[in-house]
Nucleic acid binder design. Structure first.
Length: 443
RNA sequence: GGCCCCUUCGUCUAUCGGUUAGGACAUCUGAUUUUCAUUCAGGAAAGAGGGGUUCGACUCCCCUAGGGGCUGCCA
């Protein structure tokens, strides 16, 4: 079996793309098939190498590796063959209307409350009329002739599906300038490259009707299996806003978010599995099942990515984050990471704690005498996690302070903050020398 | 306008005619952490509305409302 992820290199990969890539990837990794990365760059005017490179970088960062890759711009001769075949079969016919004329026809149909379906006027054109258009300098665009029948298939996610091709316009496969539109290359490649399962968003459901007929025409009736999952909507339940919908993988990465935080959410959103941070892609692969995917649009809230990222960080071993820290230009010790990870809500919060530990910082001292007395009671020798309780016991004995009145002033003096990781772990990192200075009010 | 899909706690969902309508996240309360975060325990919280069918409807049918998709010489 083989699935494909087929982005157009006309922009950056965003959350909507990830969910498509991920669901294809999880399915094929579970089933043990081939994941094809196909770059749909037939629109040479809008496609760029930079975007294509970006897509590969993003997928690699996410950990979604591919087994094969193809580029549509290198395959035009195959599309030419398919074109010729369809013309010979009488299924691809030339049309001479301009965009403006088609637009006008659509508006007239709509104003009469009729469906704006192409009227196939081009099929009735006389030789003379065609000659006249040619003399005028018009070159044709080409439409695929739909059967007008109801096309049915068993959708991997939606079950029995059907679309009535009589209610659709014959799709344009080739533009007047000769460029292939999405539909033909997509079908031809799926056939030629042996794609067995087409898994995509439900914005393609209607398309599937036309594509199924093109598959039938080209292969004599062999189609891949189709699966259409619901699209995401915004947190307000309405259409995914442009800003959120275009939340790019790149921006997530630059923000220091863990790939697994993104993947955990995208794999489970809209499914019956709980949305939780998972520690490996294998967990997501094992749990993937089309039957768990709902049929209603799921709400996407970018805050959920943050939440999962924080959840992941709280238990992350140093080795798991060292690459990300390096990518952010953050250099810290493993001891510091282990001490503060449970208090982080985003990765770069660690910088603040590194600064607090190493200084300089601003001690907060409300009672100078108390702090100065405490400074003299700092244990000598090697500091470890037990040092803090030795220290506080000594301060308690000497000053009589206890409870919050004992701990809070010390915490504020040593860290400048009234909250944070356990002092038992922070104190050894701060060390006696800095701790002494801080208790005397010197950062 | 037309065609297709959808609607259960705030959110993602389970339920496939008979359940105290279950779980997860979020939220609230308590415990732990002498702080905060974490962790643990507990609580509150739902069938869009209206008609049918049925002994019985969240579940099946119809209508309404709301949401999504498509209706491109975009993908």
């Amino acid at each position: 079996m083989k699935v494909r992820f087929a982005p157009s290199p006309t922009g950056k990969l965003h959350v909507g793309n990830i969910i498509t890539a991920l669901r294809n990837w999880l399915y094929v990794r579970q089933a043990g098939g081939i994941f094809l990365l196909r770059i749909d760059d037939t629109d040479t005017a809008r496609s760029t190498q930079a975007y294509e490179d970006g897509i590969r970088t993003d997928l690699t960062w996410l950990g979604l590796n591919w087994d094969e890759t193809a580029r549509q711009s290198e395959r035009f001769s195959i599309y030419d063959q398919a074109r010729d075949k369809l013309i010979a079969m009488g299924l691809l016919y030339p049309c001479y209307e301009t965009s403006e004329e088609l637009d006008r026809k659509r508006k007239i149909a709509l104003s009469r409350k009729l469906p704006p379906v192409y009227d196939r006027a081009a099929l009735a054109l006389s030789e003379e009329a065609i000659a006249a258009y040619k003399a005028e300098g018009r070159s044709p665009h080409w439409r695929f002739r739909l059967s007008g029948q109801r096309v049915t298939w068993t959708d991997l996610i939606r079950g029995e599906q059907s679309v009535d091709t009589a209610s659709m316009s014959d799709p344009v496969l080739i533009r007047a300038d000769g460029a292939y539109l999405y539909t033909l290359p997509s079908v031809v490649d799926d056939v030629d490259l042996g794609v067995t399962h087409v898994i995509r968003g439900e914005d393609h459901v209607t398309n599937t009707g036309a594509q199924a007929e093109i598959f039938d025409a080209l292969t004599g009736g062999k189609r891949p299996q189709f699966g259409h999952f619901p699209l995401l909507v915004g947190a307000d339940g309405e259409t995914l806003s442009k800003r959120i919908g275009s939340l790019s993988v790149e921006s997530l990465r630059e923000d220091g978010v863990a790939p697994l935080a993104v993947l955990s959410l995208m794999a489970r959103i809209g499914t019956s599995d709980p949305i939780e941070a998972v520690d490996s892609l294998d967990t997501l692969i094992a749990g993937f099942d089309f039957s768990k995917i709902g049929r209603a649009p799921a709400r996407f809230d970018p805050d959920d990515v943050r939440r999962l990222d924080a959840q992941l960080m709280h238990n992350a071993p140093f080795a798991a984050v060292s690459d990300r820290l390096a990518a952010q230009g953050i250099a810290i010790s493993e001891e510091l990471w282990l001490a503060v990870r449970g208090n982080l809500s985003r990765l770069d919060d660690v910088v603040e704690w590194a600064q607090i530990v190493s200084g300089p910082m601003e001690p907060v001292i409300e009672d100078k005498a108390f702090a100065a007395a405490a400074a003299e009671l700092l244990p000598t020798g090697t500091y470890d996690e037990s040092t803090w309780s030795m220290f506080t016991d000594a301060v308690k004995a000497a000053t009589g302070a206890k409870g919050k009145a004992l701990f809070m002033p010390l915490r504020k003096a040593l860290t400048g903050k009234d909250h944070g990781p356990e002092m038992g772990r922070l104190l050894p990192l701060i060390g006696r020398e800095r701790a002494y200075a801080r208790l005397l009010g010197e950062g």
